Measured scan of single mutants.
Amino acid sequence: MAEQVALSRTQVCGILREELFQGDAFHQSDTHIFIIMGASGDLAKKKIYPTIWWLFRDGLLPENTFIVGYARSRLTVADIRKQSEPFFKATPEEKLKLEDFFARNSYVAGQYDDAASYQRLNSHMNALHLGSQANRLFYLALPPTVYEAVTKNIHESCMSQIGWNRIIVEKPFGRDLQSSDRLSNHISSLFREDQIYRIDHYLGKEMVQNLMVLRFANRIFGPIWNRDNIACVILTFKEPFGTEGRGGYFDEFGIIRDVMQNHLLQMLCLVAMEKPASTNSDDVRDEKVKVLKCISEVQANNVVLGQYVGNPDGEGEATKGYLDDPTVPRGSTTATFAAVVLYVENERWDGVPFILRCGKALNERKAEVRLQFHDVAGDIFHQQCKRNELVIRVQPNEAVYTKMMTKKPGMFFNPEESELDLTYGNRYKNVKLPDAYERLILDVFCGSQMHFVRSDELREAWRIFTPLLHQIELEKPKPIPYIYGSRGPTEADELMKRVGFQYEGTYKWVNP
Score class of each variant (00 low, 15 high):
K45P: 00
S132N: 14
G14Y: 10
A78K: 13
F87L: 12
S29N: 15
A44S: 07
R120G: 15
F173D: 03
V169P: 01
K171H: 05
V68I: 14
I67F: 13
D194V: 09
A39E: 01
I52G: 00
T31M: 12
M37F: 13
P223T: 11
E99V: 09
H186S: 10
F34R: 02
H124R: 12
G41C: 02
N105R: 03
S117P: 11
N226D: 12
I187Q: 04
L177Q: 10
P86V: 13
S132F: 13
I256F: 06
S189D: 12
G14W: 11
K152N: 15
G110W: 01
S8Y: 08
V233I: 11
H201N: 03
Q133V: 13
N126V: 11
E148W: 14
A25C: 15
A103H: 15
S117R: 09
K97F: 07
T65H: 04
Y70N: 06
T31I: 10
A115S: 13
K152S: 13
R81L: 11
F221G: 00
V213R: 02
L96V: 13
F102I: 06
K89F: 13
T31Q: 09
G242Y: 07
L43T: 02
S106C: 10
Y107Q: 03
L137T: 10
L61T: 08
D228S: 12
T91A: 15
L177I: 11
R166K: 09
G204D: 03
F250H: 02
G174E: 04
K205H: 01
R104H: 12
G163V: 05
V213N: 05
Q161C: 09
R136A: 08
N226C: 09
L140G: 01
L190R: 13
M212Y: 04
Y202K: 04
S132H: 15
A39P: 04
G14E: 15
G222L: 11
I168F: 06
P143F: 02
P92R: 11
E63L: 14
V77N: 14
G110Q: 02
Q83P: 05
D30R: 12
L61S: 00
L98W: 03
K171S: 01
A44D: 00
K89G: 13
S40K: 04
I67G: 02
E19K: 09
R9F: 10
T236K: 05
D228L: 08
H129C: 14
A116S: 11
T151K: 01
E239M: 04
E63A: 09
Q209R: 01
M125Y: 02
S157T: 10
I67P: 02
L98I: 10
L61H: 01
F221L: 14
L140N: 05
D58R: 08
I230D: 05
F101H: 00
A71F: 00
D113R: 10
L55Q: 10
G245Q: 09
Y107R: 02
L43I: 05
G41K: 04
Y70E: 00
Y118D: 04
I36R: 03
F101Y: 06
E93D: 11
E206H: 07
M212Q: 03
I168D: 02
A231E: 11
K89S: 14
A44R: 03
D194A: 10
K171V: 04
L121D: 03
F138W: 09
F138H: 03
L177Y: 09
I35F: 05
V169C: 06
P62W: 08
I168K: 00
Y107H: 08
R246T: 00
G174K: 02
I256H: 03
G59E: 08
I33S: 06
L183R: 01
Q161L: 15
I224P: 06
D100E: 06
L203R: 00
R57K: 14
N218S: 00
G247L: 06
G247C: 08
T65A: 10
A109F: 11
Y49S: 00
V150A: 09
I154V: 14
S40F: 03
P172K: 05
S184M: 11
F138E: 04
F66K: 12
I234E: 15
F88R: 01
E19A: 15
F241S: 04
R74Y: 15
I154F: 02
S29V: 07
I15A: 06
V208I: 09
D42Y: 03
L142W: 00
C158P: 04
D24V: 12
H129L: 14
M125V: 14
L43E: 01
D113Q: 11
E193W: 02
S184K: 04
A149L: 14
N226L: 05
L130G: 15
S132Y: 14
T31R: 11
I162A: 13
G69K: 00
L43N: 00
A149W: 12
Y49W: 10
N64G: 08
P143G: 03
S157Y: 13
K95H: 13
F253S: 11
L98P: 01
D251A: 06
Q11T: 13
A127N: 12
A141T: 06
L137S: 07
L43W: 02
V233K: 03
N218V: 04
R9E: 07
W54G: 09
I162G: 12
Y139R: 03
Y70M: 13
D100A: 14
I220L: 14
F26N: 10
G247V: 07
I256T: 09
I199C: 05
S188Q: 09
S132E: 14
M207W: 05
G38Y: 03
Q195Y: 04
Y139K: 00
P240N: 14
N135W: 04
V77A: 08
W54V: 09
Y147F: 12
H186G: 09
H124D: 09
C158A: 10
E170H: 04
I167V: 14
R227C: 09
F66P: 06
F66G: 04
S8P: 08
A217Q: 06
D176N: 11
D194Q: 10
A115C: 15
R74L: 13
H155F: 11
W164Y: 09
Q11D: 15
S180Q: 06
R166E: 01
L203W: 00
N64L: 06
D24M: 09
Y49D: 02
S40L: 04
F191S: 02
S117E: 12
R246N: 03
L235I: 14
R104M: 12
A39S: 05
D228H: 11
I224A: 09
I256N: 05
G222W: 09
R17N: 14
G23F: 14
H186D: 08
S73Q: 09
F173M: 08
I167H: 04
V213C: 11
D58V: 09
V146Q: 15
G204M: 02
C158H: 01
G38N: 03
G38F: 03
Q195A: 10
I80N: 05
R215E: 01
Q119V: 13
L130W: 14
L203I: 01
A6L: 11
F138A: 03
T65R: 03
A231W: 00
G38A: 04
I230V: 13
G110M: 02
Q83T: 11
C158R: 02
E63Q: 12
M125W: 00
I48Q: 00
S8I: 09
R198W: 05
Y249H: 04
L98H: 01
R120V: 14
G247T: 06
P50T: 07
D79L: 07
T51K: 05
L235V: 10
Y147N: 01
G254A: 05
I256C: 11
N122M: 13
Q111C: 08
R182I: 13
H155G: 11
A90K: 08
A217L: 00
E63F: 12
R219M: 08
M125A: 13
Y147I: 02
I187W: 03
F56N: 01
L211V: 13
D200W: 03
S180T: 04
Y107G: 00
K97Q: 15
G242I: 03
I67D: 03
D30C: 14
R192P: 14
S84M: 11
D181Y: 06
V146I: 14
F250C: 01
V68C: 09
L130D: 10
N64E: 11
K238A: 06
R81G: 05
I48M: 06
I230Q: 00
P223R: 07
K97Y: 07
P223N: 15
E244S: 14
R57L: 07
S40E: 05
A71I: 03
Q83S: 15
E94G: 04
D194L: 07
Q161N: 10
R166Y: 00
R227I: 01
C232L: 05
Y107W: 09
I36K: 04
Q195M: 11
L214K: 07
P144M: 02
D58F: 08
C232E: 07
K82C: 11
P143R: 03
I187E: 02
F66V: 09
I256A: 06
Q178V: 14
G254D: 02
S117M: 11
I220H: 04
E239N: 00
A6N: 15
G131N: 14
R57N: 07
I230C: 07
I187R: 02
G59I: 00
E170I: 02
I230L: 11
P92Y: 12
N153Q: 14
K152H: 15
F250G: 01
W164T: 09
R166N: 05
F26D: 10
L177T: 12
